Amino acid sequence: MKTEQTVSVLNDLLQITNDRIEGFEKVEGKVWEMYPDIKDEYDRMISQSKIMKNELINLITEKGGKPQDSPSVAGALHRTWIDIKNSFTLGNLEESTLENVIFGEKAAIDAYQKALESGDLCEKSSEIVSEQLNSLKVSYDQFKNIEEYKKK
């Protein structure tokens, strides 16, 4: 297994994690007024993402790689698309925001799963990425059923 491939995969996950952090930080206070019960979970997800980011940076550095510690172009385009979409939303902006969180979590899960299946990660990296994937799945499960939050 080539170290360069491992570093490349880890850098891809680092960019996805940075996209996740930026996306979470864009959520407006109105969402929390409407859904106060999920604010603590959301704050936990932001903290978790920052820990994941540091773990990935450490793995990249240990492999002698240079962390590409910035959000991706695709993530920036997605956030811009969400901003445009939300500016034309006639319905409930808060619900739309939560739907976008769920979409982003699903995309992160898919990317992490592909990274694990690629065979490009060393054992230590695979263990940490697998743990991070499990955390993403827990967060996704907690947010995917918006109907439950509407009832609260």
Rank of each mutant, 00 (worst) to 15 (best):
T17W: 04
E99V: 00
E131H: 06
E95W: 00
D120W: 04
E99Q: 10
G119P: 13
K150Q: 06
V101G: 00
M52P: 01
D37I: 12
Q68H: 15
N145H: 14
P36D: 04
A111R: 02
N18I: 00
E123F: 11
V31W: 05
K66T: 14
P36R: 09
E55N: 13
D120G: 15
L90W: 05
Q15H: 02
E94C: 01
N86W: 00
G91D: 11
V101H: 03
S135M: 09
G119Q: 14
S72Y: 03
R20F: 13
K137D: 08
S118E: 10
N92T: 13
I109A: 03
V31T: 03
A107F: 07
S125K: 01
I38L: 12
I128A: 04
E55W: 08
N58G: 01
L77C: 10
S130W: 08
F143D: 12
E55K: 08
T3N: 09
R44S: 12
T6K: 14
E25S: 15
K114H: 06
R79Y: 13
S139C: 11
Q48K: 10
A108D: 11
N134S: 13
E62V: 02
K151T: 10
A115C: 01
E147R: 10
N100K: 03
E147G: 06
Q68E: 15
E28T: 15
K53L: 03
I146E: 00
S70F: 06
E28H: 15
L93V: 13
E22T: 02
L116C: 07
S125A: 13
L98M: 07
S126L: 00
L136Y: 03
F24S: 11
K152H: 11
S8D: 06
D69G: 03
N11W: 07
H78F: 15
V129W: 12
D37V: 11
D37F: 05
V129Y: 07
Q48V: 01
S8M: 13
E22S: 14
D83N: 15
R44V: 04
N54Q: 15
L98P: 06
K152Y: 09
G75A: 07
I51K: 15
I60G: 01
G29S: 15
D83G: 13
E99F: 07
S139I: 05
K150N: 09
A115L: 02
L10K: 09
L116N: 10
R20D: 14
Q68G: 06
E22G: 12
D110C: 00
K53M: 09
Q15A: 05
S72C: 01
W81A: 14
G91W: 10
V138F: 06
W32H: 06
V138G: 02
S135W: 09
Y112Q: 05
N92P: 09
L93F: 12
Y112M: 08
S72A: 00
N92L: 08
E105M: 07
G104H: 12
M1N: 14
D40Q: 02
Q5G: 11
I16Q: 14
T80I: 07
Y112H: 08
W32N: 08
S49K: 01
D43E: 15
K106F: 05
Y35D: 00
S87E: 12
T3Y: 03
L13T: 08
S70I: 09
I84E: 12
Q15P: 05
Y140Q: 05
A74F: 04
V73C: 01
K114M: 07
E147T: 07
F143L: 15
Y42V: 12
G104F: 02
E22R: 08
K151A: 06
